[in-house]
């Protein structure tokens, strides 16, 4: 029996009258590849926001590596190994690609940097950070474009940089919100390969609209509709689930 890395307990978020996430209790095992699917507005991103701390839940709790993190600040969660990407690309547009990745890598080491160094030592003079930056740039295939400003990159490249920012923080659980949104099918394939390859030794939560792809790559799948958890299970279980077929696969699928 593998350990549980993430658990949510009755997670609920209300925006005024709308209940965007309704009593969701998930459990993600260590090393698991978990996909979250559901129609637009089902509450997938909101669930991610609750787990990562971007929003605080109306009710319920989040446990990460056995500790209750419901009231822990977002940056602190990142420090404990919870990394995330955004559905809408969110990179440091005015900084170079290298600096983007370097900043994420620096955050991992910031405990080891003393105040004097933090204020006065050249940011490029830290060997471990530079090493980590190089590795990640290599992984996401942006080494040749490292000196360009992030905002000057093509859309697909920006999505990969978004992924790189998560990788560089060296997370135990990686939460990716539609990393392939808006990509061509080749780009999607390349990105999925990248995800498979570099994240194979970590736990992963993925929001994704492409059902075929999800069926292929996931260990388990959670289906959300109108904020509620409709079903969770292996790809076969989900594919054979009556409720899911009625509510989602047969119906509103785009």
């Amino acid at each position: 029996m593998t350990e549980t890395v993430l658990e949510t307990d009755g997670l609920t978020k209300r925006f005024g009258k709308l209940t965007a996430v309704d009593d969701v209790s998930l459990s993600v095992a260590d090393g698991e590849f978990r996909s979250v699917i559901g129609p637009n507005g089902a509450g997938k991103t909101t669930t991610f926001n609750l787990i990562t701390g971007a929003l605080s839940p109306s009710e319920g709790a989040v446990r990460f590596k056995g500790e209750d993190i419901t009231n822990v600040a977002p940056h602190e969660r990142v420090g404990r190994g919870l990394g995330r990407s955004f559905q809408i690309t969110n990179v440091f547009g005015g900084l170079t690609v290298r600096e983007n990745v370097r900043l994420a890598a620096q955050s991992v080491y910031s405990d080891e940097i003393n105040p004097g160094e933090a204020l006065f030592r050249d940011k490029n003079g830290f060997d471990e950070i530079a090493e980590q930056t190089r590795t990640v740039l290599e992984q996401i295939g942006l080494r040749d474009r490292a000196d360009e400003h992030a905002e000057a990159l093509a859309y697909g490249d920006q999505r990969r940089l978004e992924l790189g920012l998560v990788l560089a923080t060296d997370p135990a659980l990686v939460m990716l919100d539609e990393p392939t949104a808006g990509m061509s099918s080749e780009e999607t394939q390349a990105t999925m390969n990248l995800i498979d390859e570099v994240l194979s030794d970590r736990s992963l939560m993925l929001i994704e609209h492409d059902i075929d792809l999800v069926m292929r790559v996931s260990d388990r799948i959670t289906v959300l509709t109108r904020g509620e958890e409709l079903a969770s299970g292996t790809p076969e279980e989900i594919a054979n689930n009556e409720d899911v077929r009625d509510a989602y696969l047969g119906g509103v699928r785009e």
Binding site: V78, L95, T169
Partner: peptide, 11 residues
């Protein structure tokens, strides 16, 4: 550049 991003890479 992005306060939210800075927070979510751990600052």
């Amino acid at each position: 550049e992005s306060e939210e991003r800075a927070e979510f890479i751990g600052y």
